[in-house]
Design a protein around this nucleic acid. Structure first.
Lengths: 192, 192, 192, 192
DNA sequence: CATGAATGAGCTTTCATTCAT
DNA sequence: TATGAATGAAAGCTCATTCAT
């Protein structure tokens, strides 16, 4: 057990180092040697835990994505009121995007560059099904516009990525009030 | 003049090749040698037109960004009706994001990775001033919510990036009707 | 004893694995890790039985060489007739070269590349002394040409290496009749 | 032209360095860095002339093989007397094997290890056709045994590889008289 | 005796950039 | 202006070997 623990720790350290470097320098300037140094292991050690650089990135993507979806549905149980249910989920996402900036930023890079395998990307997609279900229920109840879930996502969740981006660049930081305004904008855009 | 023309052509070919390769392979797999080959020049020739790789990327970013802002304010003149004015601009942006996918995709990469200099990014920011002015006028007239322009942008313009992304990946393509729905969502999110 | 047995088994498994890999991939693509995997032991275990990779190769060479000489003088006892004695030995060699192809192939590699220590090579040389004695007797009796044993070897034994090589590459396989022809060629080349 | 000449010189230097190192250290200890150093170029330069290490080895093999066949049929024109014709060719081969030891040794390594592609090996095979034709003529005239050309080769040409090997290791050096004896052995083995 | 994990050294190869022409 | 050839530096990765258990 002591051994396994140590192993898991090293793996985690490597994933953290990668996240860090890719975020700050970009994928193109995150060489294995730097990753190893930052994780305080030998470069060769990386290849005990990961097949190659691509695999390291892919696995990191999947872990972060899964971390994200855990976040999203924290304390979520379907309530009667669609808006309340939605607000709960939306606030969770906002919490993640605005407070787990490192993770959020990494996901943005992955989604906007060809740096992870299409397979891994596909595997990481299926995380928001409960939200889609919620939207559908809202549509059946006549509370939410009858438009594609892609549009619903684009206008409620995706804007948070921009706000996350701005916060990370210290260009614009959302206040408590701003957060409420943001939610209202999201809700207004899709409510019937 | 013939010579100048030819020069400009080579420069353009290099920028195109770079755009192409960065979009398809990512910045990390767009080496100068491939760029040169695709533009049908010698690698050494690149350094006649650009100081180094970073400069090439920066200049490309600025050109594409400026191309974008030309697009945005095509046929734009301030009208009485805020919504109409806004719709004109919004549709221009949508047109760009959904039809100039290569360019749009490249800008997304630039905005989500540390691949261009902060200086160039700053220089590319000031392109949407007229839109900001429009919003301000709308706010003064009581037509638009009194919220930060960052929020206005996040909920009206930024969602189009997501839709562009989806189109490029052939995951979801917006119909004519969908486009109208998208605009309504955008407008609903910010109108008072 | 049971333990000893097991140990010997592991050693044998390692030698077999090495033979196999060196034959199929070449010395340059027979890493310790692959050898270990093929022998179903840990890489570290190799170093219990062998000092290092060179030692492993050297020991393998000596074992195979000794296996060879056991083969060569199977059923051999000096008879009156030189030709008969020689034929017995020659057929043994042919048997080895054409049926123990793996072993034969490995020895060929060793003899044609600088992959084993000169010491081990020298140690492996002294195996054919009885054959040399036989030749000498033949020469004294006026049955065999008075030429260097190196020449005798080159024209009677060495050609079998070529035929072994061809068989292994499935380029040319000797028939029963061909084997007799081969012996006659060998004998003709050295008989007086 | 001056440029081309220089190019060819570098290519040649690289091939020579490779021959040298592979002969002395073996394929497994002939790293690109050493090859580059010996040829007095940068490691990166190798990749201007060769696709990769395998390609370098393959090309070297083909060049040496072709050099060999040029040697073999030097001053060769079909004469009436089969033995004389054969002797001419045989002596050429002996000359090559015993005096171009580096080249000869390299070919031996290639033929006894899996270090070159099967394709290249096949391409290098067709060099001895005129010799095969000669043997056939000899067989038709009733001068040479009616046995497979593989056997003819094994007993006349292949022994020279052994003698070359011995000479290179300074174990046994053929005298002028020895050479004649060797030829007689070769001829005796195949003549009717 | 046996091992999985770890590693420093070194491998092949690529890259951004320069230089002679 | 334009280039093919050249390269030092560094990339991703592998390997023989060691060590804590």
């Amino acid at each position: 057990m002591a051994i396994r623990q140590k192993c898991i720790k090293k793996r985690k350290a490597l994933l953290n180092a990668t996240l860090n470097l890719v975020n700050n320098n970009g994928f193109h300037d995150a060489p294995m040697s730097k990753i190893a140094k930052m994780a305080e292991v030998s470069p060769a050690t990386i290849y005990i835990y990961f097949e190659n650089k691509q695999d390291l990135i892919n696995q990191l993507y999947l872990e972060v994505k899964s971390e994200f979806s855990t976040y999203v549905f924290k304390n979520y149980n379907e309530k009667d009121c669609i808006k309340d249910s939605f607000k709960q989920v939306w606030m969770n996402i906002a919490d993640f995007k605005l407070n787990q900036i490192e993770a959020s930023n990494f996901l943005s890079q992955c989604d906007n560059t060809p740096m992870i395998d299409e397979d891994s990307r596909q595997a990481g997609l299926k995380n928001l099904q409960p939200l889609i279900n919620l939207w559908e229920r809202g549509q059946q109840k006549g509370v939410i516009k009858l438009i594609s879930p892609y549009l619903l996502y684009a206008y409620t969740v995706y804007p948070l990525s921009f706000l996350s981006n701005m916060k990370q660049k210290q260009t614009f930081v959302l206040s408590e009030k701003g957060l409420e305004e943001a939610f209202e904008a999201a809700w207004d855009s899709i409510k019937l």
